[in-house]
């Protein structure tokens, strides 16, 4: 009975929301700040990927907050799951294909990950996408050989310094008399690899941080799982 009421309530809520959202002008959004950003972004940030100029330029503080959230989640998971990991003797080792494939894929995934990070200002992609691929590259050996351990101290070192360098690049702008997180060193070479000033540096920091953060979260979960 309670379930039925719940379902009816949810259905009614959905219809109400649909009716309200139907009032939006779909397919022709107002794009008040969107079109202004499109017009100004290439000149102001030097990135051809305008989403990148929003993520690292116009809304850079959001990105910083989001990195902090990932960091907070990883630190909290570390607090919850503790440090001591029992050796994963119970879990079986991955099969031949997984082990061999993992070995072959690791360098390829690293290359692709860094490629995506470095070309984030030119092509679709960037620090988040590349960082996730990096994390997957480090996680693959863990799947193949459950006994393998990631170096948590190295990871936390990368976590710390990648996050700190994002802020330090921002503070550098402040020290030069500009605003916090203002892009620096913009050159007039739109479309080139070295065109967007400090943005690729920021994306490198984002990519490393996301990669390290996710890798440590995943390995922590996997190792706790293994101890069961």
């Amino acid at each position: 009975m309670g379930n039925l009421t719940g379902l009816l309530f949810a259905g009614g809520l959905g219809f109400m929301l649909l009716a309200i959202a139907g009032g939006l002008d779909f397919g022709a959004p107002p794009m008040l700040i969107g079109s202004a950003i499109q017009a100004q972004a290439p000149a102001e940030t030097g990135a051809t990927n305008i989403v990148t100029s929003v993520v690292l330029g116009y809304r850079a503080i959001d990105t910083l907050g989001e990195l902090s959230i990932l960091f907070a989640a990883a630190a909290s998971a570390g607090l919850v799951l503790g440090r001591r990991h029992t050796s994963a003797g119970t879990q079986t080792e991955g099969g031949f294909i997984l082990r061999t494939g993992g070995g072959i894929l690791f360098p390829l995934m690293m290359t692709i990950g860094f490629y995506i990070i470095f070309h984030g200002h030119l092509t679709p992609g960037g620090g988040f996408q590349g960082g996730v691929i990096l994390a997957a590259a480090f996680f693959l050996p863990l799947l193949a050989r459950p006994g393998a351990k990631l170096h948590h101290s190295t990871l936390s070192l990368i976590e710390g310094f990648a996050g700190a360098s994002f802020i330090l690049v921002g503070l550098l702008a402040l020290a030069e008399g500009k605003a916090f997180l203002q892009p620096l060193l913009i050159q007039d070479t739109l479309g080139q690899l070295f065109s967007a000033g400090t943005l690729p540096l920021l994306y490198l920091a984002v990519g490393l941080k996301v990669g390290a953060e996710l890798a440590s979260l995943l390995s922590r979960l996997a190792q706790t799982e293994a101890s069961q």
Binding site: I33, G34, I37, Q38, A41, I50, V51, S53, V54, V55, Y58, R59, D62, T63, G65, E66, I69, L70, A72, A73, A74, S76, A77, V80, L81, F128, V210, E213, L214, L217, L218, R220, L221, T224
Partner: peptide, 23 residues
């Protein structure tokens, strides 16, 4: 481009919260 950047942010936030929830 702005909503795309926001969604990128929202997805990453979601991932962090979910990982914490699972742990």
């Amino acid at each position: 481009p702005v909503p795309q950047a926001m969604v990128l942010t929202a997805i990453v936030i979601g991932v962090g919260v979910q990982a914490l929830a699972v742990s």
